[in-house]
Design a protein around this nucleic acid. Structure first.
Length: 492
RNA sequence: GCACCGAUGGCGAAGUGGCUAACGCGCUGGUCUGCAAAACCAGUAUUCAUGGGUUCAAAUCCCAUUCGGUGCUCCA
């Protein structure tokens, strides 16, 4: 397979991404700070990183992927206090929720998931090394800061005009720091906040040093790729580079991938705009996990994407079509043999699919290649030209597609039920869509009984009664489909 | 204020110098059906925000304008 060509923020150019110095591709992706439930903007980033790792592995490149969990920070401390919970149990709760959400969205687990609080000694030695190299200093209150002025290459990732930032009115003036843009490596303890006794003095780590310590420990001083949301580019990633490279003298990550922001209904997602959604919010409204995944992947990672409810409906329909087509191929019943023209189209779809992803992970293009195949194959099947061997070749291509997009297997109902069970436990069932609840409250047995009655009515050509039952079920969100093999029903 | 990104059909969106501007959804028509639904098929932008320029050739490059978004501060 051709080598993936991925945009590199550091160089500003599209470059091949290959493992260097190790058989597997070593990558680090900034994980969540577990202070609340994840929102769909968070998941857009993790979803696109998931596509990256799935595609690399599909191309035969093993991946060593590290994603951290920030389990101590100001927001966790604040929220835990207001909920009367310990820091540990509070962050644990949201970490568990985060992984449930990743599973619901079909996001694979990284190979390593380190917790910030487990790497305090590594952070301390990193800061000590920076101190020895005159890149860090301790302020009067005991906090440690990074001395930006001594780092000649500071700003190389975000290409900031540093002089301008220094003049900026929005940088807080901190009495403790030597320079406004110096950033905290180690925070001296305040009050009874969580703290660690270390050679640096008592305190807790700054945010940026966590990632440098964990990436350095698990991936080595230099590695292949560092990924994250675009907002992390500055200052977080810039600071990671500064700390790591000044301490080790080596290039930190060679390749940097940034996923662009998500808009919701055309505006930046924010609680005050009323367009802030967690994954759980959407599941409770009756949207399917698969549709959310598919929609968030439908726009390539480097483009800003507008998340809308119309888009969610569209994705739901698109997935239905793909699943129906997949079932048609699985079911088979085609004449033996192979049609050469369909075989060529199948091969072209596969080639186009891979070519799109090789080209800076063009997920929209990859999707289009598969829909081309769906249309061509359906036409061929309708015309009776599609043969058994064609179907199995097509299934291979669909497997390749689903190895990246992961939407063909229908786990949606199960995931929605899980979300409802969670809402019930949290006393938030009132946030669920009433229609969704009504539909789920209707038992399968009740539905089956009505469907049977309707089938009987139809056989007696009592269409008025049959249609009345169909409408009654429809009003409760149950759709009936009369197929050749009997009646199929599904919840809307 | 400074910096950066974007503007493609009803909606979402690919395409970044050269065949009829992908693909999805929607819509319209058709097949199927007792009628529907579902599924499938077909059709659906002479044109790429606006104005100028470069070129044999521009949605694609350059300049200006308008609008939208983002960063500079915790944020995926």
């Amino acid at each position: 397979m051709a080598t993936l060509e991925l945009f590199n923020t550091l160089s500003g150019a599209i470059e091949p991404l290959l493992p260097v110095g190790a058989p597997d591709l070593r990558m680090y992706c900034c994980g969540p700070t577990v202070y609340d439930y994840g929102h769909i903007g968070n998941f857009r980033t993790f979803l696109h990183v998931d596509v990256l790792r799935r595609f690399l592995r599909q191309g035969g490149i093993p991946v060593k992927h590290v994603m951290n969990i920030t389990d101590v920070d100001d927001k966790i401390i604040r929220n835990a206090a207001t909920h009367g919970m310990s820091i540990g149990s509070y962050s644990r709760k949201f970490e568990d929720a985060f992984f449930e959400d990743l599973d619901a969205l079909g996001i694979e687990r990284p190979e390593h998931i380190p917790h910030a609080t487990e790497f305090i000694p590594e952070m301390v030695s990193l800061i000590e090394e920076l101190g020895r190299r005159d890149m860090a200093y301790q302020a009067e209150d005991g906090s440690w800061y990074f001395r930006v002025a001594n780092d000649g290459s500071y700003g190389k990732l975000s290409k900031k005009d540093l002089a301008h930032i220094e003049d900026g009115a929005r940088v807080d003036v901190d009495e403790e720091k030597d320079a406004a843009r110096d950033f905290a490596l180690w925070k001296a303890v305040k009050g009874n906040e969580p703290q660690w006794e270390t050679p640096l003095g008592p305190g807790r780590p700054g945010w940026h040093i966590e990632c440098s310590a964990m990436a350095g420990k698990l991936l080595g001083p230099n590695f292949d790729l560092h990924a994250g949301g675009e907002d992390l580019m500055f200052p977080h990633h810039e600071n990671e580079i500064a700390q790591s490279e000044c301490a080790t003298g080596e290039t930190f990550a060679r390749h940097w991938m940034h996923v662009r922001f998500l808009l919701v209904e055309g505006r930046k997602m924010s609680k005050s705009e009323g367009n802030f959604f967690t994954l759980r919010d959407l599941l409770l409204k009756g949207h399917r996990a698969s549709a959310i995944r598919f929609l968030l992947l439908s726009v390539p990672y480097r483009n800003q994407m507008n998340f809308t409810f119309d888009g969610l409906t569209e994705s739901t329909h698109a997935i239905e079509r793909l699943r129906t087509f997949h079932q048609r191929m699985v079911k088979g019943g085609f004449a033996a043999g192979r049609d050469a023209a369909i075989g060529d189209l199948t091969h072209k779809a596969e080639t186009d699919f891979t070519a799109a992803l090789v080209n800076d992970l063009n997920t929209a293009g990859a999707r289009a290649a598969i829909f081309d195949l769906v249309r061509a194959a359906n036409s061929a099947a309708d015309a009776g030209v599609l043969r058994g061997e064609n179907a199995s070749e097509i299934l291979d291509v669909l497997a390749k597609f689903d190895g990246i997009f992961a939407v063909l297997q229908d786990r949606d109902a199960e995931l929605t039920r899980a979300a409802l069970a969670w809402a019930e436990k949290e006393g938030r069932l009132n946030e669920a869509d009433p229609d969704l609840l009504a539909t789920l409250a209707f038992s399968d047995a009740e539905i089956d009984a009505l469907v049977a009655e309707r089938t009987l009515a139809k056989r007696q050509r009592n269409f008025a009664r049959a249609d009345a039952i169909r409408n009654e079920l429809l009003a409760k969100g149950i759709l009936l489909e009369d197929g050749k093999d009997g009646v199929r029903w599904k919840r809307k």
